[in-house]
Write a protein that binds this DNA or RNA. Structure first.
Lengths: 111, 111
DNA sequence: TGGTACGTTGGTATTTTTACCAATAATAAG
DNA sequence: CTTATTATTGGTAAAAATACCAACGTACCA
């Protein structure tokens, strides 16, 4: 059995992924490095909000950043992260199949 | 690009995994179905707390439950979930390698 | 030197998550 | 029927996550 301490470490990384904006950032960084302003341009949120999402990803070790001129460049450190999305999709599809009153869309419908 | 709506759906499932107790439950359910009392026995938390963790997992579609006599039996619906842990471990090991002041152990040390 | 673009940090209000206790519902056993 | 056993639900308090605005630091340019 996995220890609670090990589970805590893992959960910090998973928690870092558990926000729609951060998932979108991970997804887009899979295609290659991007500057803050490019990432920021994807969202309507305040830039400070986007900056803090990137900090969460960085502190967990999922992304890294480096300065390049006046830009800050973000990079996905561990691309295998996105392999996981296939399984997440499997959960979603399974929910549809079982007609579960699930969280998909938050409306208790069949996604 | 993934839409924000799709990212929201995914994030609900990932958020359901983002707690040490729930990760441990997923891990142990990979070995096979278990009753509530067996799962509850793994933790020192109040049984209501454990029950609510199981509810979170159930509502996300990660586990399912069925009544058997006086027991409630929990089952991992989507075993591929645990494949992901390998990549989470890769993140952790990468953090060590980079000597990052990371979140591992919450102490800013090399895990 | 002054101004401008870029990104982070501090502060705060709101929402969400979490954990416990107590009470309830459901089933089994005596 | 009464009493245990089993698990969930309601209520509440504390902690964490989230988003915004404002202020700041940094680098570049005129």
């Amino acid at each position: 059995m996995i220890t609670f301490e090990e589970a805590e470490i893992r959960s910090r990384i998973i928690k870092a992924m558990s926000h729609p904006v951060r998932l979108m950032i991970i997804e887009v960084l899979k295609e290659g490095e991007l500057s803050f302003s490019k990432i920021n341009g994807m969202f309507e949120s305040d830039k400070s909000t986007v900056s803090k999402h990137l900090l969460v990803l960085k502190e967990s070790g999922i992304v890294s950043s480096k300065k390049s001129g006046s830009d800050m460049i973000y990079k996905l450190e561990v691309p295998c992260i996105t392999d996981f999305f296939g399984c997440v999709t499997a959960v979603i599809e399974n929910n549809v199949k079982r007609q579960q009153v699930c969280l998909c869309g938050g409306r208790g419908i069949s996604c």
